[in-house]
């Protein structure tokens, strides 16, 4: 059984008179352990598709089954749990919490975990994650004190901190130099292995 099964998935934005068909009838199965890349030109609907897969947005047509469960039937709270523990999401625009240290940003998903994680444990796991993305010396920096690439790496650390089964990364190397890009992709491959 595929982890992700998408049938005829479509998303249409209607802003006033214009209808934007961002995603038009996607069919896709992803098995556990697969490493998949979605490619396309700018504005082709990659982010829109990823948001739907990440249970952040709902499609206007078609079905999406996650681990055999029809996502459209899940409640808001169930979706929140899935986003928290099953899926790690790296946003294209990072979406770090402003005026909040890198460490606390990475700790965020741990705050909302079902059985609550104790403060010391949260800190330990967040530090380990930041270390894995090479930011051990920047844990107390605020987002505006970090470079674009560093911010992106904080976002990656945050997506991984809850040890999710699925990692969705929206252009995770868009702001990185080629060396760091390779490192990040290596990190993903390592996690995938």
């Amino acid at each position: 059984m595929p982890v992700i099964a998408v049938r005829d998935l479509a998303k249409t934005y209607s802003t006033g008179a214009v209808e934007v068909r961002a995603v038009r009838g996607v069919n896709l199965d992803i098995e556990a352990g697969e490493f998949v890349a979605v490619v396309g030109p700018s504005g082709s609907g990659k982010s829109t598709f990823m948001h739907i897969l990440g249970c952040l947005d709902r499609p206007t047509r078609g079905s999406y089954e996650l681990e055999g469960r029809d996502v459209s039937r899940l409640t808001r709270d169930q979706l929140a749990d899935i986003r928290n523990t099953k899926i790690g999401f790296v946003f294209q625009g990072f979406n770090l919490l402003a005026r909040t240290s890198a460490l606390e940003n990475v700790e965020l998903p741990l705050l909302y975990r079902g059985p609550s994680v104790r403060g010391a444990e949260r800190r330990r796991r967040a530090l380990a994650m930041l270390d894995a993305v090479g930011l051990a010396d920047r844990v107390d920096h605020m987002p505006n004190q970090l470079s674009g690439g560093q911010q992106q790496r904080v976002a990656i650390a945050r997506a991984l901190v809850n040890d999710p089964a699925i990692l969705l990364a929206d252009e995770p190397t868009g702001n990185l130099d080629s060396t760091t890009s390779r490192e990040v992709l290596d990190l993903f491959r390592q996690l995938n292995a």
């Binding site: 990440g54 999401f89 979406n95 998903p109 909302y112």
Partner: peptide
């Protein structure tokens, strides 16, 4: 609003 959206994206429920 953005902060709230982000917290929800990371797993915060309505009651949180």
């Amino acid at each position: 609003t953005r902060e709230i959206g982000l917290r929800m994206a990371l797993g915060a429920k309505g009651r949180h």
